[in-house]
Simulated scan of single mutants.
Amino acid sequence: MLKRLKLDTKLLREMDFSILIATILIVLFGIVNIYAAMKPDVSDAKKQLLWFGVSLVVLYFILLVDYNILRGFAPILYWGSIVLLIYTRFMGATINGARGWIKVGGLFSIQASELAKVAIIFMLAKKLDEMELKVNNLKNFMILAAYTLVPVALIVIQPDMGMTMVCFFIVLGIFFCAGLDMRIILGGLTSLVFGIILLWNSGLIEPYQKRRLVSFLNPEADELGSGLQLMQSMTGIGSGGFFGTGFKFSQDSSTSYVGQFVPEKQTDFIFAVIGEHWGTIGAIVLLILYGIIVYRTIRTARVSKDIFGSMICVGMASYFLFAILQNVGMTIGIMPITGITLPLVSYGGSSLLTTMMSIALIINIGMRKKKINF
């Protein structure tokens, strides 16, 4: 029994430790910044540390199983996420204007769309493998589009614009790397623009949410309203300078600018905490660690022994690239403010768990990129 719970040394030699180490460093850095953002209330930091421990256990068990065996669970994961999204629509808790959370025993919440994000990647990878990348076949394309639209539509009506954008760019990255005709991709982008216009005028998005989304264009116009969060974020990041104001475990968040004045500082605006305490140098180090994960993920996609593994890596690389650009961009005023968190750093158990599961799959794919004779 114990032998089954031990990774074979031949597989260990194939493991990409750079992704694992970069991931662990980013998560620990995130927990430190959640602590800095919320102290003296350290409950969020403790919960994130607990989720990290759970995620490491799940990561290890995923590494034990050949990812080709896991592909058989793709339909279960996909349809399970659909059921959770439907349940969330009618029974979920509303946080920040979106009904997207499932309360579990009053102790913690699960964001169903985080699971759906991974399920979309998993299902598209499985189908593209079965289709042998014949994505320009009309029937195949319609099947892939249907698998994408069902969960995305359920996310749109929450409404969760941030996760909708994440899913769109994940699918765009997968379709592009699968070889979808550029005319179809451009048509899809055009349809997205019209879709945003329709959604904007549908009544699903509340007026205050609209103001928040466009506030980055001119935050000074409403410094005490929709532009407040962005203005305070940029001030906090600016105060950090190149080396930051420093970090002390004994220091309360009330002594820092971001800790006092930036809402959602432990989630959406965690980068403002990083900018203030660690400065430009801290932000650069974080982005370098992200760069290692993205680069090694793309490399794993290139050397994967099958389409299924390659497309999973492409989907995750697309997620990381967009989520990092969007989250960092919105804290410094170059992107609209959405509910997209900073991967592995922002507070959120379901986000951390699903992202760690996906990274485990990437490592798993790299470990089994070639046949190993036992």
Rank of each mutant, 00 (worst) to 15 (best):
M1H: 15
K3W: 13
K3H: 14
L5Q: 02
K10S: 05
L12H: 02
M15R: 07
T23F: 10
V27Y: 12
L28R: 05
F29M: 13
F29R: 10
F29T: 13
M38W: 13
A45Q: 00
K46E: 13
F52A: 12
G53T: 13
V57M: 12
Y60S: 03
V65L: 05
D66I: 06
F73S: 10
Y78E: 04
I82M: 11
I82D: 03
I86Q: 00
R89L: 11
G92H: 02
T94L: 01
T94G: 02
I95S: 05
A98H: 01
R99T: 10
L107E: 04
Q111G: 04
S113L: 00
V118R: 03
M123V: 05
L124Q: 13
A125R: 09
A125K: 08
K127P: 02
L133D: 12
N137Q: 09
L149K: 05
V150L: 06
P151R: 01
A153I: 13
I155W: 04
I157V: 15
P159D: 08
M163C: 10
I170F: 03
I170L: 01
V171W: 03
I174L: 04
F175G: 01
A178E: 01
L180A: 00
L180R: 03
L189V: 07
F194R: 03
I197P: 00
N201D: 13
S202V: 00
L204G: 11
Q209T: 04
R212C: 06
L213I: 15
F216K: 10
F216Q: 09
L217A: 11
P219Q: 03
E220W: 12
L230Y: 14
S233G: 11
T235C: 12
F243G: 12
F247D: 09
F247V: 13
S256V: 08
D268T: 14
V273Y: 11
G275M: 15
W278A: 14
G282F: 07
L289P: 07
Y290W: 08
G291V: 08
R302S: 15
M316K: 06
I324Y: 08
N327D: 03
V328I: 15
P336M: 01
I337C: 10
S346T: 15
G349Y: 07
M356F: 06
S358K: 00
A360V: 03
I365V: 14
K370I: 02
N373T: 15
F374T: 09
